[in-house]
Simulated assay, not measured.
Amino acid sequence: MGRGRAKAKQTKVARELKYYSPDTDLSALERELHGASQTGAGRSAADDREEDEDDYGSWSPGRR
């Protein structure tokens, strides 16, 4: 019980997302797309290593 109110809210949100069309700033989108390749080149290898590392080894019990 109580699912009706939650479903109604989900339906309302879905309808708003479906039919709402905000004004798109195409010049800002163009700047972002052209700037993405330039900012990506400025990353260092240390930044990439930090993203690749995971903490699994620190909390796992080891091999079985």
Score class of each variant (00 low, 15 high):
residue 1 M to E: 07
residue 1 M to Y: 09
residue 1 M to R: 01
residue 1 M to W: 08
residue 2 G to I: 13
residue 3 R to C: 11
residue 4 G to A: 12
residue 4 G to C: 11
residue 5 R to M: 10
residue 5 R to W: 03
residue 5 R to T: 15
residue 6 A to W: 05
residue 6 A to L: 11
residue 6 A to G: 09
residue 7 K to C: 12
residue 7 K to G: 15
residue 8 A to R: 15
residue 9 K to W: 00
residue 9 K to T: 08
residue 9 K to E: 02
residue 10 Q to D: 14
residue 10 Q to M: 06
residue 11 T to E: 03
residue 11 T to L: 09
residue 11 T to S: 11
residue 12 K to P: 05
residue 12 K to C: 08
residue 12 K to M: 00
residue 13 V to S: 02
residue 13 V to C: 00
residue 13 V to I: 08
residue 13 V to L: 00
residue 14 A to I: 03
residue 14 A to V: 03
residue 14 A to Y: 08
residue 14 A to L: 05
residue 16 E to T: 10
residue 17 L to C: 04
residue 17 L to Q: 07
residue 18 K to C: 00
residue 18 K to S: 06
residue 19 Y to W: 01
residue 19 Y to S: 13
residue 19 Y to G: 06
residue 19 Y to C: 01
residue 20 Y to A: 05
residue 21 S to E: 08
residue 21 S to M: 07
residue 21 S to I: 10
residue 21 S to Y: 12
residue 21 S to H: 02
residue 22 P to H: 02
residue 22 P to V: 02
residue 22 P to G: 06
residue 22 P to N: 07
residue 23 D to N: 15
residue 23 D to H: 15
residue 23 D to K: 15
residue 23 D to C: 14
residue 23 D to W: 14
residue 24 T to G: 01
residue 24 T to C: 00
residue 24 T to V: 09
residue 26 L to H: 07
residue 26 L to S: 10
residue 27 S to G: 09
residue 27 S to D: 04
residue 27 S to N: 06
residue 27 S to M: 04
residue 28 A to K: 03
residue 28 A to F: 02
residue 28 A to G: 00
residue 29 L to D: 00
residue 29 L to V: 04
residue 29 L to S: 00
residue 29 L to C: 01
residue 29 L to R: 05
residue 30 E to D: 05
residue 31 R to Q: 03
residue 31 R to S: 07
residue 33 L to Q: 08
residue 34 H to S: 09
residue 35 G to E: 00
residue 36 A to N: 09
residue 36 A to Y: 06
residue 38 Q to G: 04
residue 38 Q to D: 12
residue 38 Q to E: 12
residue 38 Q to C: 10
residue 38 Q to Y: 12
residue 38 Q to K: 15
residue 39 T to M: 07
residue 39 T to P: 03
residue 40 G to Q: 09
residue 42 G to C: 03
residue 43 R to N: 10
residue 44 S to R: 09
residue 45 A to D: 01
residue 45 A to M: 04
residue 46 A to H: 12
residue 46 A to G: 10
residue 46 A to W: 07
residue 47 D to K: 04
residue 47 D to Q: 04
residue 48 D to Y: 12
residue 48 D to Q: 08
residue 49 R to K: 00
residue 49 R to F: 11
residue 51 E to C: 08
residue 51 E to R: 13
residue 52 D to H: 03
residue 52 D to L: 11
residue 53 E to R: 00
residue 53 E to V: 13
residue 54 D to G: 09
residue 54 D to W: 14
residue 56 Y to W: 09
residue 56 Y to L: 09
residue 58 S to V: 06
residue 58 S to Q: 11
residue 59 W to Q: 05
residue 59 W to E: 06
residue 60 S to D: 07
residue 60 S to E: 03
residue 62 G to V: 05
residue 62 G to Q: 05
residue 62 G to F: 03
residue 62 G to H: 04
residue 63 R to A: 13
residue 63 R to I: 12
residue 63 R to W: 08
residue 63 R to F: 10
residue 64 R to V: 07
